[in-house]
Amino acid sequence: MKKAGSLGILRISIVIVAFAVLGGCGVPFALVEENYKVKPGTLAVASGTNNEACNRLAELLTQELKQRSTFRVMSQEEIGRRAPGYPYALMKESAPSLDNKNPAWVSPGNKGRIDALQAQLKTDYLFVVWGENLGRMVTTTYNQHGGANTRVSYHIDVYGRLVEYPKSKAIGYSQFHGSKGQSCCFLFRSEGEDIDIMLKNSAEKIAGKFLDITKTEKPGK
């Protein structure tokens, strides 16, 4: 009886921890100065670390903002034309934690690379997004009868910096944990498809908050 009880507590604890992790805690998008006025104009979303997940996140966020915002959003192809070699690693130094005094802080090295890219793109805003720690988590829970239930989920830490020009000032940021459970086998989804969905959800999450805060949503959307 005691064993069954402790197993039950263990199971509940795992569920609580899993909820906290999977709940997507963090900040999808926020401005450094709450009432800062973002002016409509041109915007480019840039991939910060040149890996598949990061490049895809930039592509998906570009699509979202193109469809839903009043900004004139530059396509990823156009960025590639104007900045030969793009995508390449812009964010070589890690981001600060959210409890930092300025969560939109960008290291001097990263800032130099962002400014150099903007000089080629000449947009009013550059939104750099990147993901770290993309991984697969296998969680096993046990019931009081000794049976086990194994679940697979995918995770990524998502970061973003919105930089305004010509001031060259980071005015907004994103930092949150994206996740998705493995799809049911009947859906015949590959791991890549599941991760792609997780990235799409992350892009939608950033875009939703961005449009809400900056009040740049297209009318009727």
Binding site: E52, G85, G135, S190, E191, G192, E193, D196
Partner: peptide, 19 residues
């Protein structure tokens, strides 16, 4: 002149594994 550059590769997804 532009080497190295990104050439679209032979995969559908390449996040944790290459498909």
């Amino acid at each position: 002149p532009a080497y190295p550059t990104n050439i679209k590769g032979p995969y559908k997804y390449a996040y944790l594994n290459i498909e």
